[in-house]
Structure formats: structure tokens, C-alpha cells
Computed example of a mutant assay.
Amino acid sequence: MSLHDDAVLVLKSYEGQEELRQAYLDHLAAQPDGMWKACESGHLTASALVIDPSRGRVLLTLHRKLRMWLQMGGHCEPQDATLAEAALREATEESGISGLTLVPGGPVTLDRHPIPAPCHWHLDVQYAALAPAGAVEQISEESLDLRWFTYDEVADVSDGSVLRLVAAARARLKV
């Protein structure tokens, strides 16, 4: 099965955000290359919010290009067999934390946002990942900084998309 096929299956089984979910499916139906950065009309991305539920906090990255506090994530790569694998790979690479595990149940939310040219849209499929006990983060070349924030502190540093992701992840985890 291709990554494109996996994305279609993931989105078909995703419950909620019906209009946005359908927009993602329509995009994939119209764009055979809709998984890849080269698709200039937009492409799917995969991200994961790294959570330490025992301490009530999330790890955010100060994105080097956007200069915003965001969850870990990015473009799908040819070696990614599934969206979940892409999200976990991105979270591991950008956080420097090995042993992350995705929260069961598939994506926790979807977020479509405009990006600078030459592409127009990121269609982000957002997961949540649990940090192992004693996890120590390490800044990657894609980040200016990494920092743990309590759930309540996220509103002071990030935008609405991250707040929605934190809320959806907390609801999934019941924390």
C-alpha cells in the first residue's frame, strides 16, 4: 500500500471535522502527488504533539523559519509507509526524544493552513505522542528552541491551531 493509499484510509476512518476531512480527501483524489512537498497546490503533512501527561505538559518547538511555538511535524518522506510513521519520525527527529509512542486511535485533529510560496497549503494530519518517563529533549537544526509548557501556558505562546491540538489530545487522553 502506498502512503497516498494509507492517507485516504486514515482520513476515511477519521471522525469529526467533516468538511475539512472531505477537503483532504478531495485533494488526494485530484492530486496523485498530493502527499509530497512538490505538489504546489498543497500537500499533506504529518505532525505530533509530544505530551508528558504525568507532568501535565507538552513539548513545543520554536520553528526556525516561522518563529512560532508549534508541535513537531513536517513533510512526508518517501520512506514513510504511513501517516502515523511520518508523524512519529518527525516528532522523534525534531524533539530528539527516542521512545515516543503515538496515542492510539489515529489522528487527534486536522489543520489546514496557508504557507508561503511556491506551495499554497499544508493539510496537516495531527497526532499525539507520549514521551517516555525521564525524556530529555534535544534541539534539532529545524528549531531555535525546544521547551516544555504546561497545558495552561500554551495559550500564552502559541496560536489557535496549537490550542485546538492540545485540547483534542487532552480529550483523547482524558487528562
Rank of each mutant, 00 (worst) to 15 (best):
E93D: 08
E142S: 15
L11M: 13
A38G: 14
L123R: 12
R57P: 02
A29M: 02
I115W: 02
H63S: 13
D6H: 04
G99M: 05
G73P: 03
V162A: 04
S41F: 02
Y24V: 00
S2W: 07
P132S: 06
H120N: 07
T109C: 14
H122L: 09
D52P: 01
R21P: 01
G34F: 01
H122F: 05
V50K: 01
V10M: 05
E142R: 15
P104C: 10
P78E: 08
Q22C: 09
C119N: 15
L70V: 07
L123F: 11
L146V: 07
V8H: 12
T101G: 05
H4R: 15
G99E: 00
G96T: 02
P114E: 10
Y24E: 03
L20P: 01
G160W: 07
K174V: 13
L9A: 15
A131C: 14
L100N: 01
T61M: 15
P104W: 02
H120M: 08
A84L: 14
E19D: 09
H75F: 11
R147H: 12
H122G: 10
K174H: 12
S47G: 15
D26A: 13
S161F: 00
P132A: 08
S13D: 12
E93Y: 02
W69P: 02
D6A: 00
V157L: 03
G42I: 06
Q79D: 09
S54M: 09
W121D: 14
D26R: 15
K12Q: 14
